[in-house]
């Protein structure tokens, strides 16, 4: 049952996290900024609007908004948010299943972009694929670096390994932390890699797939993107900050878990807002270099496992 509550909590929080980052970023840049509740209002407005589709669109454009949300929810069910008990929804919580579901949702998004035949989407797709080439190995290797010493390739085990790691093997924990955090910036389409606020062809990656979407489809797609962002934060917490997640199902334990999760999300999204506020966008072909560095850190974490 707790798995269902976890997923519901993520769903409620996801748009708010997006709004909070936008609000804080505006404050850092000296603007007043929109209310943190704006993404929720946007979703409500978009759901009520008429759908405008491209005349080149096929069944892909009608299926992907729903499918993509379903896949992200499936991935959410693999994650330990409040409880470290193996989730009853997807018995295993395997990182392979989790990352494959997210990869599938990425693939479906790219297809949605190409479905309208827009040149912007093609451009964004090429860039996104280029990044994903380095993102996926990095995230896999960092999670394995945390989990493998405890023979864990699933999230419940990684959680336990991470709890032991921070005290026993700080090198692994900190290397994995930097690598995962560095990759999350790319995966969630944040500056300095991608600019979520503009629709210019020079800067767009993730936004370019949604250009031709509208109405309820746009609402579903934006909501999936917000949820995916929160999932990535949760992955980081599971691998590097397992504090507060417990295996008891009592009321007190539950309250502590929720509170600590909220605090961690607050810190993570503030950090993202600060980074967005102070960095400028990089050239697209500078990103692979940055990602290669992150991959090197992940491999170094793995080696630290082997040596220490």
């Amino acid at each position: 049952m707790i798995s269902v509550w976890q997923v519901l909590l993520l769903m409620v929080m996801a748009p708010f996290v997006q709004g909070y980052v936008q609000w804080l970023k505006a404050r850092i840049q000296g603007r007043i900024g929109p209310s943190p509740l704006k993404p929720w209002r946007d979703l409500r407005k978009q759901l009520a609007k008429e759908v405008v589709l491209s005349n080149a669109a096929s069944w892909v454009s009608r299926l992907v908004p729903y499918l993509s949300l379903g896949l992200v929810l499936g991935a959410a069910a693999c994650l330990p948010v409040l409880s470290g008990l193996p989730g009853p929804l997807l018995g295993s919580g395997s990182i392979f299943l989790f990352l494959s579901l997210l990869a599938f949702s990425r693939l479906s998004l790219l297809l949605l972009g190409l479905d309208s035949g827009s040149a912007f989407a093609g451009m964004g797709a090429g860039r996104d694929l280029l990044f994903s080439l380095l993102v996926e190995p990095t995230i896999f290797i960092s999670l394995l670096a945390v989990g493998l010493p405890a023979d864990a390739t699933a999230f419940p085990g990684i959680l336990r390994a991470a709890a032991a790691n921070t005290s026993q093997n700080p090198a692994v924990a900190s290397l994995a932390l930097v690598a995962i955090a560095g990759v999350i910036l790319v995966e969630t389409g944040r500056l300095p890699v991608d600019n979520p606020d503009t629709h210019l062809e020079l800067t767009m990656v993730h936004e370019s797939f949604l250009l031709e979407s509208s109405g309820r489809y746009l609402a579903l797609l934006s909501f999936s993107a917000q949820l995916r962002q929160l999932l990535w934060y949760t992955v980081l917490f599971a691998a590097c900050f397992p504090w507060g997640i417990n295996e008891s199902s009592t009321g007190a334990g539950f309250a502590i878990a929720i509170l600590s999760f909220l605090i961690k999300v607050l810190f993570a999204s503030s950090a993202v807002a600060v980074i967005e506020g102070v960095f400028a966008k990089w050239r697209v072909f500078a990103v692979p270099r940055y990602l290669t560095f992150m991959l090197a850190l992940a491999v170094a974490a793995m080696l630290a496992d082997a040596i220490l």
Partner: peptide, 30 residues
């Protein structure tokens, strides 16, 4: 099953709350 159920639930909920999609097709923005 889970992903299938989530997809169908999302579709049903939106359909119940907002009714059938009124869709207009236009050329892709160039």
């Amino acid at each position: 099953v889970l992903i299938f159920a989530a997809t169908v639930t999302a579709w049903t909920l939106i359909r119940l709350a907002q009714g059938k999609t009124s869709t207009r097709t236009v050329p892709t923005w160039t």
